[in-house]
Amino acid sequence: MEPLMAIAIGIAYATAIYMMLRRSIVKLVIGILLISNAANLLVFTAAGLKRGAPPLIPEGASAPIGDVADPLPQALVLTAIVIAFGVLTFSVVLIRRAYLIVKADDLDQMKDTDT
């Protein structure tokens, strides 16, 4: 399972970087969305995959029984998803407003502040 995930994550990163290198701002935001999801998957995979063993404590016990999945990466990914969600909301609002002002979906026309 891990090699498959690794390949999938690699493809996601590559696609995201390709998207971020385009001139269109919409594609830039899609790239940002994709790369943060790729990073989440990577955190999840790097910590080890385990199927069908949720880290839940059965009734009456004080610790999970047997070999269970590590709950920490799941918590990390959840936090990272929340953050990515917030950032994405912000970037969508940002490009919407930028579009209203600049009237172009093209990063090459946004060079006024460059040096």
Partner: peptide, 29 residues
């Protein structure tokens, strides 16, 4: 207008930095 242009660069590069950070944290974990 200048703020929008500046913000798009700021947001993109800082997000990229965060993603690299998160990736590194994942591998470290």
């Amino acid at each position: 207008r200048a703020q929008m242009e500046g913000a798009i660069k700021y947001v993109t590069l800082n997000l990229l930095s965060s993603v690299i950070f998160l990736t590194a944290v994942g591998l470290l974990y």
